[in-house]
């Protein structure tokens, strides 16, 4: 699996060329071009054509390009998948309202078809299922482990609370169990897990507090709706100096053991197994990104 660091994934409304063309300058690790909630029903075709051309011709640099398509039970689903894959240069598709492994399989089948039709490297386009219903939360492990194309799952707080019949609050107590469940499912399936948006773009303190919470729960990143939210989130996810030193010690020790044909490695007196090595790689990746910033 290609290693990626996704501390922030920036939503960009799919029918806004001014924002789409600047997508890679804000410093987010990934962008999420949106065909779903931010696009009116009578503009779905225009947004699709625009996003496809942006991906095809804009030559974005050093950023993961993902598109949130419309849900599987809408008339836009098939066309969304076809047009954005035809554009080439797409990294991942975010599937909203993924309620079961069957939903993921339906998307996987379409991606297989269009990757072949448009001569895209087989298996290169990833799937990011979005868990935003009660049934989706309950089935999140089955969803997360339903396809080799999945390298992250994500939780959608607004739709989830609507589905639960409760209000989404700033404190987020109502989705704490769901967040924990989705994190556990992602860890069990060995994929990244991305948190929902923080809606109040003027409340930086609240954003930082929520990011600290979701980091402690095990989330690996967070969706954002405004470029101003990127830096505070990156600061919370930034590893300490000691963590960075430890991460490079682990990576060095692993490479040395590999050369010497040894299977067992210890760093600072503790055994290093694959999940710990993966954590070290993630921290090293974040340290690299911090240097670039």
């Amino acid at each position: 699996m290609k290693f990626r660091t996704r501390r922030t994934m920036l939503y960009i409304p799919g029918n806004n060329p001014g924002m789409l063309q600047l997508a890679d300058i804000f410093g987010a690790d990934a962008v999420l071009f949106d065909l779903e909630d931010s696009v009116a029903p009578n503009e779905k075709d225009a947004a699709r054509d625009l996003i496809a051309n942006m991906i095809r011709f804009r030559e974005y640099e050093n950023i993961e390009i993902t598109v949130r398509i419309n849900p599987i039970d809408t008339p836009y689903f098939d066309r969304d998948v076809k047009e954005i894959i035809a554009s080439g240069n797409l990294d991942a598709i975010r599937l909203p309202k993924a309620n079961s492994a069957k939903d993921v399989k339906a998307l996987e089948k379409l991606i297989n078809k269009y990757e072949e039709e448009f001569k895209i490297e087989p298996g290169s386009i990833k799937i990011h299922p979005m868990i935003e219903t009660a049934i989706g939360v309950i089935q999140s492990y089955e969803i997360a482990s339903s396809s080799d194309r999945i390298d992250a799952i994500t939780i959608g707080g607004q739709d989830l609370t609507a589905n639960m019949g409760v209000s989404k609050t700033k404190e987020g107590k109502e989705i704490l169990w769901a967040r924990s469940q989705v994190v556990m499912s992602a860890k069990a399936a060995n994929v990244d897990v991305i948190d929902t948006i923080f809606a109040d773009i003027n409340d930086e303190e609240g954003l930082i507090e929520e990011t600290r919470l979701i980091k402690s729960l095990g989330f690996t990143g967070k969706a954002v709706i405004n470029p101003r939210q990127i830096k505070p989130i990156h600061a919370v996810f930034a590893p300490s100096k000691d963590e960075v030193e430890w991460a490079f010690e682990v990576i060095d020790a692993y490479e040395k053991a590999l050369k010497e044909g040894r299977g067992v490695i210890a760093v600072r007196g503790k055994m290093i197994d694959p999940p710990v090595r993966k954590r070290a790689q993630r921290i090293a990746g974040m340290a690299y990104l911090m240097e670039q910033e």
Binding site: P17, A46, R58
Partner: peptide, 10 residues
């Protein structure tokens, strides 16, 4: 230009 092409296509 890529936006002009997209809008024209639509």
């Amino acid at each position: 230009n890529l936006t002009i092409k997209a809008r024209l296509k639509t």
